[in-house]
């Protein structure tokens, strides 16, 4: 049995958080979802510092990043993840409200694993999030960073 690792969701809008959690929960994905409301908190979590200094050392199975967030936005978090030796293997999915070319280009340039435009139609949104969670958190075999255990 695969051990279910956590999913990190960085999203500043509580309504979107609720909708996303609903979608993930709907599929009975048993992964723990850690929700942070800005990029700074997301980086704290990933680097195990501040409020998250005590978390288990395992990296999350998937990071869902909202593009527009206060303080540190999704693109900056993405840049940090993909330039860090220990974090770059974590699959990152960018969630955005628009198909804005610039954002797309920058995200792929930084090495994002997927870029998802949040659809207005709820069903589509649900399906998209479910598919993401299933693929990246359950099926995807990510290389584990070597650790001295």
């Amino acid at each position: 049995m695969k051990e279910l690792r956590t999913i990190l969701l960085a999203e500043d809008n509580p309504k979107d958080v609720e909708l996303t959690l609903e979608a993930l929960g709907d599929y009975n994905l048993a992964n723990e979802v850690v929700v942070v409301s800005n990029g700074e908190a997301a980086l704290d979590y990933l680097h195990r510092r501040g409020a998250y200094a005590d978390r288990s050392p395992e990296n999350p199975a998937l990071v869902l990043l909202d593009l527009k967030m206060p303080k540190v936005d999704g693109l900056e978090v993405l840049r940090e993840i993909k330039s860090n030796e220990a974090l770059r293997v974590i699959p990152v999915v960018m969630l955005s409200s628009s198909r804005e070319e610039r954002d797309l280009l920058v995200s792929y340039g930084l090495g994002v694993n997927a870029y998802v435009v949040k659809p207005v139609k709820f069903h589509e949104f649900i399906e998209a999030v479910k598919a993401l969670g299933l693929f990246w958190a359950f099926f995807n075999e990510a290389p584990q960073p070597r650790k001295a255990e």
Partner: peptide
């Protein structure tokens, strides 16, 4: 237009989402 694409669509998504829920 960037703002429209991001900020205007979010509430809409919420309206449809929560109406559905």
């Amino acid at each position: 237009s960037y703002s429209v694409s991001h900020d205007l669509r979010a509430p809409l998504r919420h309206i449809t989402g929560f109406a559905d829920m």
